[in-house]
């Protein structure tokens, strides 16, 4: 009987915690649509930099000038070798994949995300809102 009472107390405490999470927007409400998933975009504040597999979809010149550590360079031009490198990285340590682009070619990066989702099934793949400009700030 006492154990049940303790479990009930834990349930109440958990419910209070969930209420706090919802009020302070620490966690999205379960009944709300998952907008960031629907449009395939994710903002930099929602991403923890060290737990993401980055994909740089900018030109080879831009990539050579500077990119995030560990970012895989992947464009339409190097699709075959780039996807292979990405797959190897992801299989070694499966984690969220985020594609970033530059302002000039962001529509290309969204198409890349669509293609990637077909190629790397099972992975969570997003394109970064604001692209490289946000990261390099």
């Amino acid at each position: 009987m006492q154990i049940l009472r303790e479990c009930f107390t834990l349930m109440v405490l958990t419910s209070v915690g969930c209420g706090v999470s919802l009020i302070l927007a620490w966690s999205p409400a379960p009944w709300m649509p998952d907008e960031w998933r629907e449009d395939g975009q994710i903002s930099a504040s929602e991403v923890r930099l060290d737990s993401v597999l980055w994909v740089d979809s900018r030109s080879a010149e831009d990539y050579a000038q500077g990119h995030l550590p560990g970012a895989v360079h992947l464009t339409r031009e190097n699709w075959g070798s780039g996807v292979m490198e990405l797959m190897l990285n992801w299989l070694e340590n499966p984690r969220m994949i985020v594609v970033y682009c530059s302002e000039a070619d962001c529509s290309a990066s969204k198409r890349l995300v669509t293609r990637l989702r077909e190629a790397v099934t099972g992975a969570d793949i997003y394109s970064l809102e604001g692209g490289w400009e946000v990261l390099s700030r």
Partner: peptide, 21 residues
């Protein structure tokens, strides 16, 4: 969907309280 987001909301709090409990 709603169930997965429910787990994301509830499980961390439950783990926290049982850990402290």
């Amino acid at each position: 969907g709603i169930w997965a987001r429910g787990v994301v909301l509830v499980l961390p709090w439950l783990e926290l309280w049982v850990g402290i409990g």
